[in-house]
Simulated scan of single mutants.
Amino acid sequence: MFHCYLLRCSDGTFYCGHTDDMERRLAEHKSGACGGYTYKRRPVELVWNDAFQTRDDAKAAEKRIKGWSKAKKEALIQRDWVRISELARCRGLNR
């Protein structure tokens, strides 16, 4: 099983990633062990994740979500599918 996940960083930004071990990866983000984007933006909070059968599917979801606006990511966190659809139509993109 693979996961795509969204973290809310302490500065209000989001970080999207994928992993095959959600618990381990979240601990790495929280401790700063993985460095990168989230290192200076700790603490981070897991606000959304979903499971996928393949790594390719999880990576595809990550790539798609990274292209979304902050408003669309907030709608995802709330699982507001109507709002996600509205935001996609407003931009004229299926992102």
Rank of each mutant, 00 (worst) to 15 (best):
Q53H: 11
H3L: 05
E86F: 07
G36S: 13
D56T: 06
M1F: 10
T54L: 06
G92P: 05
I84E: 10
R41W: 01
I84D: 01
R64G: 02
D56E: 15
C9V: 02
D57A: 15
C34D: 12
I77S: 03
E62P: 05
L7R: 02
Q53F: 12
R41T: 02
H3D: 04
A51E: 14
A71I: 05
E28N: 15
A71H: 11
I84W: 03
G36F: 11
Y5P: 06
D20Q: 14
W48R: 03
G92R: 06
R25W: 07
G67L: 10
F2V: 06
G17V: 07
R24M: 14
K30T: 11
F14D: 01
A27F: 12
A51S: 14
Q78G: 04
D20S: 15
R95V: 15
L93N: 06
C34G: 08
R91Y: 05
E74K: 05
D21H: 11
K59L: 15
E28R: 10
L26D: 05
R25N: 06
E62S: 10
L26S: 04
K59W: 10
A58K: 03
E28F: 09
D80V: 03
Q78W: 01
A75G: 07
F14R: 03
K59N: 08
R83C: 04
A61G: 01
A33R: 15
T13F: 03
D56Q: 12
G12H: 09
P43I: 01
K40W: 08
E74P: 00
G12P: 04
Y39H: 13
G32D: 09
W68I: 00
I77W: 05
